[in-house]
């Protein structure tokens, strides 16, 4: 519920530059700051309901992701090892936990690697949605191939969504950027051009990297998470 509300705010954060509102000068700065505040508040509100063990696991998964980013710095193209754990966490512990893992993983790794930038709230929402998506998939189809497909789709979707942020910097550039007042079809065509040129190939590395990691590393990591989940039942005789 909290995550759903926060996600709505997230959608607004990504789309407001394209809704034809007259942009007032301080808007971009306020959007970034506002997005960050909404996210932190949502994380806190949702984390408040978590068992300490899950909260610590959440923080820990974020730390592991940060360490992976330190060690493997960047992969090839858009491939990044960090999505794998986010996918697994969502898949095993559900959509809310998946969203939290995604958002905090990006936050902690940005803090640990000195990568805090104005993109951070956008990335946090994007990665949160990846985890949420994996959680929803896990509720319906609980199998490794399903998680691999979720990794594939979310690999592209993450890039597509984040391009909405990149693209806003080209606002007003005719042909390349978003120009207010154009019909929606033309806007989508322009965005499609931008996406194909800048990101499609790059995102393919992320998407297929996710699939590969899920298939190669998924079973033991999912099993370890399941074992942790098993701790949540206590029988007193």
């Amino acid at each position: 519920m909290i995550v759903a509300l926060a996600s709505l705010a997230g959608v607004a954060l990504f789309l407001w530059p394209y809704l034809g509102l007259g942009p007032f000068p301080a808007a971009p700065a306020l959007a970034v700051a506002g997005g960050a505040v909404v996210l932190l508040a949502a994380i806190e509100a949702a984390a408040r309901r978590l068992d300490t063990r899950l909260l610590a696991l959440l923080a820990a998964l974020a730390a592991v992701d940060a360490a992976l980013r330190l060690v493997l710095v960047t992969g090839i193209g858009g491939f990044s090892p960090i999505f794998f754990l986010i996918l697994c966490a969502g898949f095993v512990f559900g959509p809310t936990f998946g969203f939290l893992t995604g958002a905090t993983a990006l936050l902690v790794s940005a803090l640990a690697t000195g990568g805090v930038g104005p993109w951070l709230p956008y990335q946090m929402f994007g990665a949160g949605w990846v985890g949420m998506f994996a959680g929803l998939v896990g509720l319906r189809w609980h199998s490794l191939p399903a998680l691999a497909v979720a990794g594939l789709l979310s690999g592209f979707a993450f890039g597509l969504v984040l391009d909405l942020w990149d693209w806003s910097y080209l606002r007003g550039a005719p042909g390349a950027g978003f120009t207010p007042g154009l019909p929606p079809a033309a806007v989508i065509a322009a965005f499609g051009r931008f996406y194909l040129v800048t990101s499609a190939l790059y995102d393919a590395f992320r998407a297929f990297g996710n699939v590969l990691m899920v298939l190669l590393l998924g079973p033991p990591v999912l099993a370890a998470m399941q074992r942790l989940k098993a701790r949540f039942t206590l029988v007193v005789e």
């Binding site: 806190e44 730390a63 360490a67 902690v108």
Partner: peptide, 25 residues
């Protein structure tokens, strides 16, 4: 203040980062 509980968990997890990176190598 209200964000302290989560902040403490995140801060704790940052202590693990160098060890995990060293462990990987």
């Amino acid at each position: 203040g209200p964000l302290h509980r989560t902040g403490a968990a995140l801060s704790a997890s940052l202590n693990l980062v160098p060890g995990i990176a060293r462990g990987y190598l």
